[in-house]
Nucleic acid binder design. Structure first.
Lengths: 107, 107
DNA sequence: TATTATTATCGTAATATTGCGATATATAAT
DNA sequence: ATTATATATCGCAATATTACGATAATAATA
């Protein structure tokens, strides 16, 4: 036991869950918000800003990136992470619909 | 190690993360949607509907309930779970704002 | 009160996540 | 080429989550 049975759920439900999983750690929420506030993001700043070890920040960034919420390009010595507007829009809509639908149908 | 450092993050970021955590498993997403579709929800139906053991469904329901997204009242022999509209509204707004802010500030 | 049906809790095993130090890799500047 | 800085990966330990069978608790009904 102990392994999630993702295969028994619909594509839609799995996708909502995947996005929520990335947002389910406060460090990742803080990282996303911080990136959105910067002109260009320098990761080393994140280590100071968030207060976790560099290796841990890198791991969190990777999970966000795997989902496609951010993309990184090198700018000189530093990596510049940006929100991927396309993916962000898509997930914003899916979440919005989910919240709205459940609310709408409620008893 | 292995313990989340929730104390170093803001109340707001922790709250978004808590809600996302509940939505981070497809079973809980499916449960919420199913409950919203029913007049009154009977948990035993969920076992058939979702396809997980009764103990597991009960655990998932408990996590949703702990966050305040649903509330249960007995109707005769059965428990009727309903979406808590107040909590739902609040979290819908917080999520909406988060998505919108990040999008808005993005480079 | 005994029975039946529904839901919750307990105990346990498997797996996943979080975090960090150490180390590797990559880029810029010297 | 060497050095310095930035980021990624590895390996490990601690903790959390997922799932289920067994069992307990709860409530309606006979």
């Amino acid at each position: 036991m102990g392994v999630s049975k993702t295969h028994i759920f619909s594509e839609k439900h799995n996708q909502i869950a995947s996005v929520a999983k990335v947002l389910s750690h406060p460090a990742r929420v803080a990282i996303l918000e911080y990136i959105s506030r910067q002109e260009g993001c320098i990761c080393n700043d994140l280590v100071d800003e968030i207060g976790l070890a560099q290796a841990t920040i890198s791991q969190h960034l990777n999970e966000i990136k795997k989902l496609g919420l951010i993309k990184g390009t090198f700018e000189g010595k530093n990596l510049c992470y940006c929100i991927d507007q396309n993916t962000w829009d898509t997930f914003q809509n899916h979440f919005g619909e989910f919240f709205q639908n459940v609310k709408f149908n409620c008893c």
